[in-house]
Design a protein around this nucleic acid. Structure first.
Lengths: 157, 157
DNA sequence: TCGTTAAAGACAACTTGGTTGTCTAAACAG
DNA sequence: CTGTTTAGACAACCAAGTTGTCTTTAACGA
């Protein structure tokens, strides 16, 4: 059709490659700083919990997964020491999940590492090209909420 | 630290958002054109099989997953009518997996749709900005092979 | 040539992390 | 007070990875 410089299939590969490179670098650094057991999904789930805490249903809605799946992930986070559940006295159906100090630390550390990675990209590419890349993607990417249903989305039938 | 315009955590979110938007558009279009049952993972696996065919072990190596996992995916592809396995007379251990005509069609259609999506990005952003985006990512993304271990990579402990 | 090594595929058991469906308890609105 | 909605839990199921073991077959070296 169009005489494009690049084959169309390269673009998604490059986008995913960039994502994966950043996330891998993040988790390499997290592991080096005492968070060996954190997985990519955990960071996103903790982000959804936030510093103010959330219920499993809220987390599920924020991440685009069922409340059951969110509950499982929270269970996992609890087992790893990143979150803790406690009853809500005002609404006795709810169980508010809060980040533990370790969870808060991991989240803060992640933000710091992400900034560092972006700095490195800016040093290599130039700050304007990174900003341009971000601007282009902001134009083309519709939603802004991150969906955690990656495994199911990618592979499920 | 640095007075960057964007928070560092946005960059991976935007990259993944772009990837997901493209893949979702691809599969929406594939579904509209008779490939309702194809999942993102299937396309990558079929790409790994290629037009000349491959064994499960080869597919596993190309996708960075175990031969057992590759075998499972091939089984799935076979059940969906996209691939077919046949013995190899020269090496009786091997079982060469080949794409069926339907599989070849899906792969060709995917390439066409990817080109169309890139064209649309180029119309919106300008061809130079898309090319720049690709160039930036080519600089920053290390490997070139696509790893299919997305579910495990993302979520496994 | 023979015996060891390596490779391909199959099978089983397990783990993660999704899904849907069902159930109970609690809140809330009429 | 009653009916609806919501939170959470539990169970069954599925997809797709993993490791480990096994058989068959090929390749290769002494």
């Amino acid at each position: 059709m169009t005489l494009s410089a690049a084959a169309g299939y390269e673009l998604p590969l490059l986008l995913f490659g960039g994502f994966r490179a950043i996330i891998d670098e993040l988790h390499g650094e997290l592991a080096r700083r005492g968070h060996q057991d954190m997985r990519p999904a955990h960071g996103f789930a903790m982000q959804a919990i936030g510093f103010r805490g959330a219920t499993a249903s809220e987390v599920g809605r924020r991440l685009g997964i069922s409340k059951q799946a969110a509950g499982k992930t929270i269970e996992r986070l609890e087992a790893l020491g990143y979150a803790r559940r406690a009853g809500d006295s005002a609404d006795r159906r709810r169980k508010l999940t809060r980040l533990t100090p370790r969870g808060v630390e991991a989240l803060a550390l992640s933000a710091e590492i992400f900034d560092g990675i972006r700095d490195r990209w800016a040093r290599t590419l130039g700050d304007d090209r990174v900003a341009d890349l971000e601007a282009s993607l902001r134009t083309m990417v519709p939603g802004e909420t991150f969906r955690l249903d990656v495994p199911g989305w990618f592979g499920a039938s």
